[in-house]
Amino acid sequence: MKELQEVSKETRNLYWKKNIRLTIFTMVIWFIVTYVCAFFVKELNNIVILGFPFGYYMAAQGSLIVFVWLIFNYAFKMNKYDKEFGVEEEEEK
């Protein structure tokens, strides 16, 4: 585990804090598009776009689109943080 010597403890802690913030952000959005939208589905269904009641749409497709975005967003941000804090991987062979 020589990587622990290569990266100082402070840097690792800062990096981990950034990670936790991004994780919380991701989980909050995740929670809203699934559970909060489902909880208020009846109210949301009063909005109709292209024939789709909005509450129904969120469960059928809307939340899915947000999930895909959330994961890619997380991946790109984390890969950026890796470089910022110098904890990125050695060159892939």
């Binding site: 489902a38 999930f67 959330l70 997380y74």
Partner: peptide, 20 residues
């Protein structure tokens, strides 16, 4: 509508997998 539990459940799990 209630059947959409499967749609959300089987996709939303990947968000958990991705971050945790």
């Amino acid at each position: 509508y209630d059947g959409l539990a499967y749609v959300m459940g089987w996709t939303g799990g990947y968000v958990l997998l991705a971050v945790f």
